[in-house]
Each structure stands twice: as structure tokens, then as C-alpha cells.
């Protein structure tokens, strides 16, 4: 089973070892070498350094054609939206997860069939309400 993680931050470095433990072969993509290195620590995790004009070539280098799982979790939600839709609609990856932080984009892309994750203003709102015991 192959998984691709697009965007290497703290989230990716927590997720990658977990995926390896669950039996995935993980390929991590990032445009920053040091961020990539922070995720690629085990032999089961492969890193691919990406640069702008050849995105599709890097995705193919990461075997996107045969991957089971694609996580678009970089800090740039617009890039996540684009690359997640590439994975879903061009390479037909069975499971695609897309991180979006703006509530409007979360709503739009959930409606368009992406599996969306991200900070939820509504949850924060509820948490704050509870914290200060406001009814």
C-alpha cells in the first residue's frame, strides 16, 4: 500500500511514522529540503523534493498512479485544493484528504466531494463558549 503526503510540516512528521506502522509505504513531497528531511527519517519513508513547473512529473515519481492514499496537508490551502483535485480527478487516487483552513473553502470542497480536514471555527467557537461558560 502506498501513501503520498503533500506538504511536510509538524503534521506530516507525526503522520508519516503512523502510516508506516499501519503498513503503508510513504512518499513525502515538499519544496523545502529541510522540511522534507524532518519527515524522511525512516527507510520506509521516501522524500521527493518538488519545484513549481514540474509538479506532475514529481507526482508520477511518487507513483501517484498506484497510490491508495493522498494527503494534501501543506500550509498553503490553495495548493492543497489544486493538488488534491489532481490526485482525485486526474490520477483517480481512491482516498484523497485535503487540508483547508478557510470555512468557506471547507464548505465548497466538501460539497465538491473532497474529504476535507482543517481547523473549524465552529469548534473553536464552541470551545471558547464552554471555556468561559457562556450560554
Amino acid at each position: 500500500m502506498d501513501a503520498i503526503i503533500y506538504g511536510c510540516g509538524r503534521l506530516a512528521s507525526m503522520l508519516a511514522p503512523q502510516l508506516v506502522q499501519s503498513g503503508y509505504t510513504v512518499t513525502a513531497l515538499d519544496s523545502d529540503m529541510s522540511r522534507l528531511d524532518s519527515v524522511v527519517e525512516e527507510p520506509q519513508i521516501k522524500g521527493v523534493l518538488i519545484a513549481d513547473p514540474m509538479m506532475h512529473d514529481y507526482l508520477q515519481e511518487a507513483h501517484i498512479n498506484s497510490t491508495e492514499l493522498f494527503l494534501a496537508i501543506s500550509d498553503d490551502e490553495l495548493q492543497n485544493a489544486l493538488v488534491a483535485q489532481v490526485a482525485k480527478h486526474i490520477y483517480n487516487v481512491p482516498q484523497v484528504v485535503c487540508r483547508l483552513d478557510s470555512p468557506q473553502l471547507q464548505q465548497l470542497y466538501s460539497g465538491l466531494g473532497l474529504e476535507v480536514v482543517g481547523f473549524s471555527i465552529l469548534n473553536l467557537f464552541n470551545d471558547i463558549q464552554q471555556a468561559i461558560r457562556l450560554d
Binding site: 490553495l78 485544493a81 489544486l82 483535485q85 473553502l105
Partner: peptide, 10 residues
Amino acid sequence: DETNLVACQI
């Protein structure tokens, strides 16, 4: 490209 795609989809 990502700006144009998201803007057009909205």
C-alpha cells in the same frame, strides 16, 4: 494556477 482554479470554482 491554484489561485485561478479556486477563484473559478468559487
